[in-house]
């Protein structure tokens, strides 16, 4: 694996499957009463969050703590960051604290990549602007493999031939970017569906298909992933009204009926119930939304273990 996890493109197929397999074994340990492992004892993981994201931060925190790492939460609010300290100066502070890994969430695309220039520890991207969110893609892939490639045989397997349709604000979605890259690496066939205004400009250079007709795509999907629609997109004229968006791109129960029998419905959260996804769909047994949250911890444990659990490269 690369030294840092900035983009899903940092993972080759073996890396990605290795993470999923490791998470699989860790998920077994999760089922047992004692859930703390000594693996990362003595190591310090810093959660550096410039955006509020309780879910992602607590997921990383739980993962690090279950591996016995020391966790420092460094949030932008109420710290020197809020007083205008630069990312570089914050990085130097973390360096002085002896951070072995920095998990960073930042509103600016590329901030985690810049951070790698200034810290000696590993950097894990926990979502940067409209760029990427690779651990979300990993937990999504893990959930897909769990649900669609059942049985003990899934160890070592990718998602070859699995048809995934991602619907919504692809343009601003770091989840979509990471999922497209990771799912392509794992052999899945990804189709993006969005209003043309929310489709990235050069989407034809991405390893996926793109279209505007949700109903046609749903009929041939094993997985449909609904992306959150931010309210502020409406005022920027990406689409006329929420009502029209819901009608053309929302997933309600009649649309869900178009899906093949075995297909699953995913959402990276937080959901806008009644906008991109209807409540009865979110709560249906096809929905993996709760499982995605639970899988988040084990997948992040796997990432932390594989990045921090061994020797730094070169010293082996």
């Amino acid at each position: 694996m690369n030294r840092h996890l900035i983009s899903a493109a940092d993972l080759d197929r073996d890396d990605a499957i290795g993470i999923l397999d490791t998470a699989e074994e860790l998920a077994r340990a999760e089922g047992r009463p004692i859930r703390k492992l000594p693996t990362l004892r003595g190591l310090t993981v810093v959660n550096l969050f410039y955006e509020d994201s309780t879910r992602t931060r607590t997921s990383f925190e739980a993962a690090a703590k279950r591996l016995s790492a020391d966790v420092i939460n460094f949030s932008a609010k109420g710290s020197s960051v809020a007083k205008g300290e630069s990312l570089k100066d914050t990085a130097l502070t973390l360096e002085a604290m002896g951070a072995d890994a920095v998990v960073i969430r930042h509103p600016a695309s590329g901030a985690p990549r810049r951070l790698t220039d200034w810290v000696s520890g590993r950097v894990i991207n926990a979502g940067d602007g409209t760029h990427e969110h690779p651990t979300q893609a990993l937990l999504d892939a893990f959930t897909m493999r769990q649900r669609l490639a059942g049985g003990p045989d899934r160890h070592g397997r990718g998602l070859d031939g699995v048809r995934v349709t991602i619907v919504g604000d692809v343009l601003h979605s770091r989840v979509a970017r990471s999922n497209v890259l990771l799912l392509a690496t794992l052999g899945a066939q990804v189709t993006l569906v969005a209003p043309p205004t929310l489709m990235p400009y050069a989407v034809d250079t991405w390893p996926c298909r793109a279209g505007y007709d949700i109903d046609a795509e749903l009929r041939k999907s094993d997985v449909v992933m609904m992306l959150r629609v931010q309210q502020e997109r409406m005022s920027a004229a990406y689409f006329p009204t929420v009502r029209e968006y819901r009608r053309r791109y929302g997933l309600d129960s009649s649309r869900m009926a178009l899906l093949p029998e075995h297909a699953i419905v995913m959402h990276p959260g937080p959901m806008n119930r009644g906008v991109e996804i209807a409540a009865e769909v979110a709560d249906s047994d096809r929905s993996t939304i709760v499982a995605q949250v639970a899988n988040g911890v084990t997948v992040r444990m796997a990432v932390l273990y594989l990045m921090l659990g061994g020797a730094a490269e070169g010293s082996a």
Binding site: G18, D21, T22, E25, L306, G309, G310, A316
Partner: peptide, 10 residues
């Protein structure tokens, strides 16, 4: 663990 690269879990 830190003497060798991270190993796959069995």
């Amino acid at each position: 663990l830190r003497l060798r690269p991270a190993r796959a879990l069995q």
